[in-house]
C-alpha cells in the first residue's frame, strides 16, 4: 500500500494483491495485476474494465519503459489505480504523474516537502499527456 501523500485518488485502495501478468492472463478474474518492465502492456487492454489496480515496476529508475506502459493504459481509457513501484525517485514523479500514475510505492522513502515542491513547480506544459494539463499551444490560441 502506498503512503497517503503518495496516493492521488479518493477511492478506497484495492486490498487484493497484484498478480503477475502471466497469472492474470491465465485467470482473468483477478482485479490487480503487476507489470514488469519489458512486458507488453497491450495484453491487458481487453481486460481493463474489471481491473482496479495496475502496478508498473521500475527495476532501475533509468529504465523508462514504464512511462510508455502508463501512457498506453490511460490512452486506452483505463480509469483504475496506476501505481509505480520499485526504484521510483522524487525527481521522476512529476513526469510519472503526467503519464497517468496516481500512486507510488517507492523502494526508498520520499520527502513529502520535496515532492510537493516538485509537483507544483511547472505551471505550464508543452505537450498533451495523460494528465489534465492544457498544453501551451492551446493556451496560446484560446
Amino acid at each position: 500500500m502506498a503512503d497517503d501523500f503518495l496516493r492521488f485518488r479518493d477511492d478506497e485502495p484495492t486490498e487484493e494483491p497484484a498478480v503477475t501478468l502471466d497469472a492474470f492472463l491465465d485467470q482473468t478474474n483477478s482485479s490487480a495485476v503487476r507489470l514488469e518492465a519489458g512486458e507488453d502492456v497491450r495484453l491487458l487492454l481487453p481486460h481493463l474494465h474489471h481491473i482496479s489496480l495496475i502496478e508498473v515496476d521500475f527495476p532501475r529508475f533509468r529504465d523508462g519503459r514504464g512511462y510508455s506502459s502508463a501512457q498506453i493504459l490511460r490512452e486506452a481509457g483505463y480509469k483504475g489505480e496506476l501505481r509505480a513501484t520499485g526504484d521510483v525517485l522524487v525527481d521522476q514523479m512529476d513526469h510519472m504523474r503526467r503519464c497517468g500514475f496516481d500512486s507510488f510505492a517507492p523502494n526508498a522513502p520520499i520527502d513529502p516537502e520535496v515532492l510537493r515542491a516538485t509537483l507544483d513547480r511547472y505551471a505550464f506544459r508543452y505537450q498533451t499527456a495523460a494528465d489534465a494539463a492544457v498544453p501551451v499551444w492551446k493556451l496560446r490560441h484560446g
Binding site: G64, S68, Q92, D94, H95, C99, Y122, Y126, Q127, A129
Partner: peptide, 14 residues
Amino acid sequence: RQATTFHPEFSYLP
C-alpha cells in the same frame, strides 16, 4: 523544441 522539452513519456529513453 517545445514539444520535446520535458516530454513525460520519453523521460528515460534507452
